[in-house]
């Protein structure tokens, strides 16, 4: 039972972590909590289910499952990245010099708009995808692991490693780190701030799209409202790990996933959603900067 809950929690945590990365990266650069990020995830899931549906109609999954998932992930990532960057252009860029509250409200507005666009375009009911990956898993230390769970865990860990490499050892990654330290100074030394911000939004959105496609494969249903709760939980994960910190968001995601699963199984399944937010409150009281968060230094 413990092992099974551990696996369930890790798979769920990987999804939270991928979404939390988007929150934390944007916060690191713009000090903005992008509340529309959960909707980008929802959008990624919708693109995923549409592409998967079309590929299933032509019979590709029977021919090559890996190719099907690869095509779906690529299209969904590209689409969401474009969407994320556009949202930034439309809703945040004009407000970059405004007070910090303005872009935050703009983000909430963007979230509602995106939800409603999808509701009008795709309908209010659940969209479902019949399972295309076999759900009978194999046994591991008395627990069942399904192929989708393996895929979720390995793909998300791979993406996190790639992201870490990108941030630490590419020129763009260096520019991103510089921008997050001091946006004005970075601009003065010749970094194209607008490009850095766009790339940040694109990467965050593409990661959320991966999470969306994974969830589609995992649970088989999408809904226009699905980004709301999971967005809040991923945000909690980012705060827990220390908002602005990339390893923090990864760790935070896994911790939230595990706490939720253990809480639901050992304490009460009725209060499943409450555990994540309880963690948020405790973190904010005991360690407001999160696990890896640095104490904010006032810029003089």
């Amino acid at each position: 039972m413990f092992t099974q809950q551990l696996i369930n929690g890790l798979a769920l945590g990987a999804v939270y972590a991928l979404i939390a990365l988007g929150y934390t990266m944007v916060y690191g650069i713009l000090q903005l909590i992008n509340f529309a990020h959960g909707e980008i995830y929802m959008l990624g899931a919708y693109v995923g289910i549409i592409v998967l549906g079309m590929l299933t109609a032509v019979g590709l999954p029977a021919y090559s499952l890996a190719l099907t998932i690869f095509i779906t992930l690529t299209i969904s990532m590209l689409f969401s990245a474009a969407y994320g960057a556009t949202v930034e252009r439309v809703a945040y860029k004009p407000l970059r010099q405004a007070s910090r509250l303005a872009p935050l409200i703009s983000a909430v507005g963007m979230s509602i708009i995106l939800q409603n666009i999808i509701m009008i375009m795709q309908g209010k009911q659940y969209r479902f995808l019949p399972p295309i990956i076999a759900f009978e898993g194999f046994s591991l230390f008395g627990a069942k692991v399904s192929p989708v769970e393996i895929f979720i865990l390995s793909a998300s860990i791979l993406l996190m490693i790639l992201l870490q490499l990108f941030i630490t050892s590419t020129k763009m990654g260096k520019a991103m780190r510089a921008t997050s330290q001091d946006r004005v100074m970075a601009g003065l030394v010749g970094i194209n701030i607008n490009k850095v911000i766009s790339v940040t939004f694109m990467i965050g959105s593409a990661l959320a799209a991966v999470a969306g496609v994974m969830v589609t494969l995992y649970y088989g249903v999408v809904h226009f409202f699905m980004g709301y709760t999971i967005g809040l939980k991923a945000f909690t994960a980012a705060v827990l790990g220390g908002i602005g910190s990339i390893p923090g968001a990864m760790l935070g995601g896994f911790i939230i996933g595990l706490i939720e699963n253990f809480g639901a199984s050992y304490v009460s399944s009725v209060y499943k959603d409450a555990f994540a937010f309880l963690v948020l409150i405790i973190t904010l009281i005991l360690r407001p900067n999160g696990i890896f968060g640095q104490k904010a230094v006032d810029k003089v």
Binding site: Q4, Q5, L12, F262
Partner: peptide, 20 residues
């Protein structure tokens, strides 16, 4: 005997407890 959260995506925690 217990309840689940409507609209939640993941019910594996409660199902694992039941399986046990």
């Amino acid at each position: 005997y217990g309840g689940i959260v409507q609209r939640d995506a993941d019910y594996k925690a409660v199902l694992t407890a039941i399986k046990n």
